[in-house]
Amino acid sequence: MRFRRNAPSVNAGSMADIAFLLLIFFLVTTTISADKGILRKLPKDCPPGQICSEPLKERNVLRILINDNQEIMIEDDIVTLSEVKGLAKNFIDNNGNGTCEYCNGNQLDNSSTSPQNAVISLQHGAFTKYQLFIEVQDELTKAYYELREAYAKNIYNKSPEALSQEELKAVKDAYPFILSEAKTIRAD
């Protein structure tokens, strides 16, 4: 008489439990990084029937170009990164038409007429390094922040953090952040 041997079987029920527990463990312990970026308010759509694109006076546009050689050019002059903030502040706060009561500019003929009319055009080449582009953006943001901070201290005798919502809106209206960004088209 022959005895039949039963082949040993593997209990697969506990493997599914272990796989489920590992899945739960990794879902709970994994951190998902939040997206980081540059906070900018996009312009509103133009209402139908209105003309929203007025031609700009050339003096109200500060042209900044970051070329493929990682050089920063402001109005065709090569500048360093540390010069960007000062040049932007002088351009924005120029008071070219003499009507800005809170501006401290030199009233130059080749700079903006008022902070509300000042537009910064930032262009970059196809091979501009992202790090440099962000650094230039940071310098422009610092320029606006410093102008707004000085305005808040002069008008309200407060730091920007201590302003009410209405006061903060007035500060932003006094120095609106108007930035035009574009990638330069390469002609090959």
Rank of each mutant, 00 (worst) to 15 (best):
M1S: 12
R2V: 07
R5K: 10
A7V: 03
P8D: 02
S9F: 09
A16T: 04
L21Q: 13
L22I: 12
L22A: 10
I24Y: 08
F25R: 00
L27P: 00
T29K: 11
T30W: 01
T30R: 09
T30E: 09
T31D: 12
I32E: 04
I32D: 01
I32Y: 03
A34Q: 10
K36R: 10
G37D: 05
L39W: 02
K41E: 14
L42V: 07
P43M: 00
K44Y: 04
P47G: 04
P48V: 12
P48D: 13
G49W: 09
Q50T: 15
I51S: 11
I51M: 11
E54A: 14
P55G: 09
L56S: 12
E58H: 10
E58M: 11
N60Y: 04
L65A: 03
L65S: 08
N67M: 02
N67L: 00
D68C: 06
N69Q: 14
Q70E: 14
M73A: 06
I74K: 05
I74Q: 09
D76S: 14
D76N: 15
D76E: 15
T80K: 14
L81M: 15
L81A: 10
S82D: 14
S82L: 11
K85R: 15
K85G: 03
K89N: 05
N90Y: 04
F91S: 04
D93A: 07
N95E: 05
N95L: 05
G96Y: 04
G96A: 12
N97D: 15
N97A: 11
G98I: 09
C103I: 01
N106Q: 15
N106I: 11
N106Y: 07
L108F: 11
L108P: 02
L108G: 01
S111P: 00
S112D: 04
T113F: 01
T113I: 03
T113V: 09
T113D: 15
S114R: 09
P115A: 07
P115D: 08
P115G: 10
Q116S: 08
Q116C: 02
A118T: 03
A118D: 05
V119A: 02
I120P: 00
I120N: 01
Q123T: 13
Q123P: 00
H124C: 00
H124D: 00
H124Y: 10
G125K: 02
G125L: 03
A126M: 01
K129F: 04
K129E: 13
Y130L: 08
F133V: 05
I134C: 07
V136H: 04
V136G: 01
V136Q: 03
Q137C: 02
T141L: 08
T141K: 12
K142C: 01
A143V: 06
A143S: 08
Y145L: 03
Y145W: 06
Y145N: 06
E149A: 13
A150H: 10
A150E: 14
Y151T: 06
Y151M: 06
K153M: 11
N154A: 15
N154V: 05
N154G: 11
Y156E: 05
N157I: 03
K158I: 03
K158V: 08
S159C: 07
P160H: 06
E161L: 13
L163I: 12
L163D: 09
S164W: 15
K169V: 13
A170F: 02
V171F: 07
V171R: 06
K172E: 15
D173W: 03
D173N: 13
A174R: 11
P176N: 12
L179K: 12
L179G: 09
S180G: 10
T184C: 05
A187N: 14
D188R: 07
